[in-house]
Design a protein around this nucleic acid. Structure first.
Length: 552
DNA sequence: GCCAACGTTGGC
DNA sequence: GCCAACGTTGGC
């Protein structure tokens, strides 16, 4: 608020005169007008002041602070106002106070000069800020002081209070509820003694808040102050509670930072400490908590003796949901394994059945008149090869397609470094290539490279079961000569391949199930193992309502 | 002029 | 509201 005249006969300022021809500034709290020269504020100063509060108001309410538009101007204001040597005693006192405040706000406030951090001369080289420094190979983006060198006292005194000015409480000499706030904050701050001071302490302080919020907040404050200058106890409790939650979330947020500094402190080699070994009085080795390996082992042993028995007892007495889940999954896996093995047995039976069928076909008398031989049905119906797309006549279609498929199949190889190890007959070709030192992984019956087609004797009978319905086979077998039967070309080979494919699927499923079972058993043994029991513990926070192992 | 590091700000 | 990034500045 600035003013330069046009006020009636009312009395203003500390001088209680009606003069309003000189430059005047109004208090944003009591709305009283003051002569600039009476209170030591020049017109230039006023330009950089956003909100002005008179001495009386600030003495009455220490939370009030003169707000400046920005720090640059603020500094200029200080230097310029200090240049003004005119004015009375009050004026000088005011200026000294103002300068003190400004100084307190300067960079130096971040050093108390007394704590160990302030005395520390070297950067730790381990914290995130050190790692950012050029001398430690960083990119200098963060440009912050080593965390171990950041003043701890600074973080304590004014971090949460909402004021950067040191010891405002002593200055004000007023006992209101905000004093309790100070205590509360200190308590938290002491918890963080080991931790670096919060980098942006001033963020929480009113002068550093964003202008928009500042305005709103100030308006509220203004109203409150008009109604009751001191905070009510109820309000104080609310403040405390909300502060508490703010702090909790802040602590959570800065946990990574804390971890950084804790890590740096943990391995701080500068301070010699006593060995952690039970009863050992020797100093610990550099970079270690122990004077010797023996002491480390001793402590580890005593920890196990101390903690493990109770953990085992606890483990046995309380249900473990993870364990129950694992057991159920194991049961399910066992069931699935059984089913897969059952299917494999059925497929083996099918092979035997096929062998018997082929054997029965061999004993059959050839019937050259049987339909399906290439002598008959010389129709002009044509089909296209599924592999190469050539137009074929119906008679030789199957034969062509089979040969064509083999030709293309031979162009692709499937190799593995390992030979198949399966109970019973393997369905894989497993031809060993000594140059590549690998085994062929095509299906044995279909491998065009390593499985020779058996020579068909001229008197061999086809022997393929003839369908009575579309997909139903009867007892009757095809008695056409094998060489000439175009309807059932390679029927035996294809059936064997089909069975082998099913067998392969079941084996793969078994492999998968075995892997799952192994993982679960591993998890179970880890859970019950010494390490697991030592590291983890389940705490029942509500013992009145016992945990149900089957409720998930 | 250099550099440590403070204070501010825009982006998230 | 937080924080990475960077402009700025006090001290040397």
């Amino acid at each position: 608020m600035e003013h330069s005249g046009d006020v009636g006969e009312t009395l203003y300022c500390i001088c209680r005169s009606s003069d309003c021809e000189r430059f005047m500034i109004g208090c944003d709290h009591c709305e009283e007008w003051y002569h600039g020269d009476c209170i030591g504020v020049t017109q230039l100063d006023a330009r950089s002041i956003k909100r002005y509060y008179c001495d009386a108001c600030r003495a009455h309410n220490p939370n009030l602070e003169i707000q400046y538009k920005n720090r640059k101007k603020e500094r200029r204001a200080v230097s310029e106002s200090s240049d003004h040597e005119k004015g009375d005693k009050n004026n000088k006192e005011y200026k000294t106070k103002l300068r003190e405040k400004m100084m307190a706000k300067s960079r130096m406030t971040r050093r108390c000069g007394e704590c160990s951090a302030c005395h520390r001369a070297e950067d730790c080289g381990r914290c995130d800020f050190c790692k950012d420094m050029k001398k430690f190979g960083g990119t200098n983006k963060l440009r912050q002081k080593c965390r171990l060198r950041q003043c701890t006292s600074f973080g304590l005194s004014s971090s949460e209070k909402g004021s950067v000015v040191p010891d405002t409480a002593s200055e004000k000499g007023v006992t209101d509820f905000s004093d309790f706030e100070d205590d509360f904050d200190e308590e938290e701050a002491y918890e963080n003694v080991k931790v670096a001071p919060k980098r942006r302490e001033k963020r929480n302080s009113s002068p550093e808040e964003s202008p928009k919020k500042r305005k709103i907040k100030k308006k509220q404050k203004h109203k409150e102050n008009k109604k009751s200058p001191a905070k009510s106890p109820v309000k104080y409790i609310i403040v405390c509670v909300s502060n508490f939650f703010k702090k909790k979330s802040r602590q959570k947020m800065s946990s990574r930072r804390h971890a950084d500094i804790d890590d740096a402190l943990e391995t701080d080699d500068d301070v010699p400490r006593q060995c952690y070994g039970p009863g050992c009085l020797e100093p610990a080795r550099v970079g270690s908590k122990y004077c010797s390996d023996e002491c480390g082992m001793k402590l580890a042993k005593s920890r196990i003796y101390e903690i493990l028995p109770s953990r085992i007892q606890q483990w046995q007495s309380s249900p473990c949901v993870g364990e129950e889940n694992n057991k159920k999954t194991l049961e399910k896996l066992g069931q699935e394994t059984m089913e897969a093995r059952q299917k494999l047995r059925q497929l083996d039976m099918k092979i035997q059945e096929l062998d018997a069928l082929v054997e029965r076909g061999r004993r059959l008398q050839m019937d050259s008149e049987q339909e399906g031989t290439d002598q008959e049905e010389d129709t002009e119906l044509s089909v296209y090869c599924v592999t190469c797309g050539t137009e074929l006549n119906q008679k030789g279609a199957l034969r062509h397609m089979e040969k064509c498929y083999l030709k293309f199949e031979a162009q692709t190889s499937f190799w593995s470094l390992y030979k198949t190890r399966i109970e019973g007959n393997s369905m894989f070709c497993d031809f060993y290539n000594p140059q590549q030192k690998m085994y062929c992984k095509r299906l044995k019956v279909l491998c065009p490279e390593h499985t020779k087609e058996p020579k068909v004797p001229p008197d061999a009978v086809c022997g393929c079961p003839i369908n009575t319905e579309l997909f139903e086979e009867g007892e009757t077998l095809c008695r056409a000569p094998k060489k000439k039967c175009v309807k059932h070309f390679c029927w035996e080979k294809l059936r064997r391949a089909e069975i082998d494919m099913h067998r392969l699927r079941q084996w793969m499923k078994l492999d998968d199930l075995f892997e799952q079972e192994r993982n679960i058993r591993m998890a179970m043994s880890n859970r019950m193992g010494v390490l697991g029991l030592m590291l983890h513990q389940t705490v029942d926070h509500d013992p009145m309502t016992p945990m149900k192992s089957n409720s998930r």
